[in-house]
């Protein structure tokens, strides 16, 4: 099994819309690959059909078996990370080896507060803990 690592600078996992999402990926591949991709995407979990949307990606073709590379994305304006009782929307960074599809994932939060937005009774949007003090 290949070794795959993905990390953000200062281990940040919360990003305001428009903020830079940057970090490094490392791979040590068991066998040669066609490409390695870093993906920024969101997906849903909960009751019903899952939605997934790839928002940005960077691709490294014909990668060496062992390498460390930087990646840099801009956090989009939305959708925000949120959770209700019926659905959660989660953001993640993923390092994917192609064509084997070996994957390493890092979950992140995209929201104005740096925290997941919770939908409460009546599914009204409430942004919690606005001043949580996390440097964003």
């Amino acid at each position: 099994m290949s070794t795959l690592k993905i990390g953000t600078y200062e281990n940040r996992t919360a990003f305001r819309p428009g903020a830079e999402i940057a970090g490094k990926v490392l791979w040590i591949l068991d066998e040669s690959a066609k490409a390695v991709e870093v993906r920024l995407f969101w997906y849903t979990e909960g009751k019903g059909t899952q939605d997934v949307e790839l928002v940005d990606s960077v691709r490294f073709d014909d990668p060496p078996r062992r390498e460390q590379r930087e990646f840099r994305f801009t956090a989009p304006e939305g959708p925000y990370s949120f959770s209700g009782k019926l659905i959660s929307l989660l953001w993640a960074l993923e390092l994917v080896v192609l064509p084997s599809e070996e994957t390493e994932r890092l979950e992140i939060v995209v929201s104005p507060s740096g925290h997941e937005v919770f939908l409460h009774k009546g599914e009204e949007i409430e942004i919690t803990d606005e001043s949580a003090g996390q440097p964003l």
Binding site: E45, G46, K47, G48, T49, Q50, S83, G84, K85, L86, I87, S88, L90, F118
Partner: peptide
């Protein structure tokens, strides 16, 4: 319970 924590979420 958050949808993502529900053990009976579709993905699970």
């Amino acid at each position: 319970m958050r949808a993502r924590d529900n053990p009976f979420r579709t993905e699970r």
